[in-house]
Design a protein around this nucleic acid. Structure first.
Lengths: 219, 219
DNA sequence: GTCTATACAATGATAGAC
DNA sequence: GTCTATCATTGTATAGAC
């Protein structure tokens, strides 16, 4: 397990304790498999994906893929673990010392940027959670819950200081998550309804979210 | 095909033209299968679901299920078609003559209510769209697009009349869809993070959305 | 480390008795 | 209309040659 990988069990294990030294070729091929698996799992979900598809996408044989990861489950867990980092990082940046509305808008903007830059990651989680979050439930209940609780306290403090409209902090976070991830998760629907060019679409999205957020949150 | 069912091809076909007369028992069993299929497909997606699971849930044998619907695809299409109606109706209610913010809030409230009352339907679509909307793409590009375009014009008129903040109408609709459906689609995540009782949770959701919408949209 | 071949289970769909 | 039995296919995983 790589050092920057998230522990899906929620336990406090020593990072890298069980992994032997890996050769360059191993590192390269595992990375290729994980990249391919992100592609496949994010569009088809866990059960809808086959090891064959992943192997094809990675340009390897099925048997070879299963040499690096013993089971399909293992591949899936690896992809989730490595992608969770991207998803978690921006919220951690929310700074209690900064200007409240500015901080929240910066966070929203970053999530919007991620939805555009890493839509696969977004869809991977959407799929996982839609199926009941069987693999990442421990992560949600431990690491994510702990982080979100801390950030909710910051937001609540801002509200108590009269710097922010009296929203429910947790639901404000849900609103930011949903409205930004929507652009990745529901892309086919958005493309069916939108007539503007790509860049205009995203400009309008950003402008509308900014307007709604800044006005809605003003004390 | 039932009369209140949505045509997934987007063509203008004569309703019921190809269906023979159905006996009571047929109607009852088809309904049972569709209800069971909604359960199964919405939690596992199309490929993740098996005809066996559907048969079990419906309390029938697999062979008997496949007597009523020849293929798994047919079951899926039937469930989607019957559920789309629920999803479409509320937007159609948006009234150009009413008070803009009140109308938009009523619509949001109705969507929130649906997310709570019919979370399966929400997840069924989320799954379908995540996989690229293979079945309902024609519907999105025709019926839905036509409806959304009309409603966007109403919203734009409101803005032009100075009754509403200058948002991009399409993106306002996306915001309403995403923030309300989130409570159905991401339920496992919400349950992992929320500590309040069910009814408090939904009260807070409604209160926060109302505050953000009404303040955000005020001209 | 990588490939071919294959075992074994799950699943969609059909045939035919009742 | 409903059931049991069965087939064909696909998909996960392993064995063993190279």
């Amino acid at each position: 397990m790589a050092d920057d990988e998230i522990n899906l069990n929620g336990d406090a294990t020593v990072s890298g304790s069980s992994s032997r030294k890996r050769t360059r070729i191993q590192i390269r091929n595992e990375a290729r498999i994980v990249r391919a698996a992100l592609d496949v799992f994010s569009s088809n979900g866990y059960r809808g994906s086959t090891v064959d598809q992943i192997a094809d996408t990675a340009g390897m044989s099925k048997a070879n893929v299963l040499y690096y990861f013993n089971t399909k489950q293992d591949i899936y867990a690896a992809v989730l673990a490595r992608t969770l980092t991207i998803w978690l990082d921006p919220l951690a940046e929310l700074d209690a010392e900064g200007d409240p509305i500015e901080e929240l808008w910066k966070y929203t903007q970053e999530k919007l940027r991620l939805s555009r830059k890493a839509p696969h990651a977004s869809r991977l989680f959407a799929n996982e959670i839609l199926q009941g979050a069987p693999v990442i439930k421990p992560f949600l209940e431990n690491q994510l819950k702990s982080l979100v609780t801390r950030k909710c306290q910051i937001i609540q403090t801002w509200i108590d200081q009269g710097k922010l409209a009296p929203v429910a902090p947790l639901h404000l976070i849900f609103l930011i998550w949903s409205s930004t991830q929507h652009y990745a998760d529901f892309a086919p629907q958005i493309n069916a309804l939108n007539t503007e060019p790509e860049d205009v679409l995203h400009e309008q999205a950003e402008q509308t979210l900014k307007l709604m957020l800044t006005r809605g949150l003003a004390p």
